[in-house]
Amino acid sequence: MFLAALAVFPLVQLLRLSLSDVQVQNLHRDWPFIGLENFINGFTSGVLTDGLLNTLVFVVIVTIIGLIGGIAAAVALRGTGQVTGALLGLMVFIWALPPVVNGSVWKFLLADDGLFNSMLSLFGLSSFPFLYDERYALISVAVVNAWAVIPFNALVFRAAVLNVPDEQFEAAQLDGATPRQEFWYVILPALRPTTLVLGVLTIVYAFRSFDFVYVMTKGGPGASTQTLPYLSYQQAFVGYDFSAGAASAVVAVVVVLALAAVYARSVLKEESE
């Protein structure tokens, strides 16, 4: 019960904050209720609108690459050999490294004199502005974030693949199925329920992820990689406008609430089957 209270308490406080006017002066005193003013300000100034759009792009990239990459890795690594074990170990090692390490590494690798641009220059191409051009910075950070979740998704998907009964593969092979057909008609259907749970977890992760933005671009150039979680952090803990920060977080919560409803519906459906 205490734990439940502990888990719910911050959510309640967050909602209250988002509807009040709270700066550093009155954080520990009264919180005057101001209704939706924080949200209205955020949307009329465009900060929240931009943040929301950036977040949606970010979430779509992380989710799609994260899930497809996870499935691809799981299928490619469904053996039990030593190479497979080594590759999985490598991925888990990377997954366990903190974002400040992973993000910094990619910041270096994607810099002008970093590995990727050095390779491009070998082919006579000029440097690609991965992180400092507004068109590519958000995509670069999102792809790195997807890279960081693939190991987790791959592990879970792989276990689901391993759970497909051997007989099904044998039957498919007896029928002369190609590896591609095997993938489409045996593996993929078996992964459907796993995809649902992982999809939800990945989307939620992408919606709240701010570490990589913080480490790699600080929201820049300008505000072009400012996603809602980063915006919220920055408003609350750099600008000390706690209620504006809470409002930005609540916008993300509301979007996820809609997704949660979809998930809940599919859970209900699954139960009535």
Binding site: R208, A236, A249
Partner: peptide
Amino acid sequence: LSLLIVLQMVPQTAT
């Protein structure tokens, strides 16, 4: 279940 998902969304910094 929906509440659990929403709970995941509270930014850690906000807690």
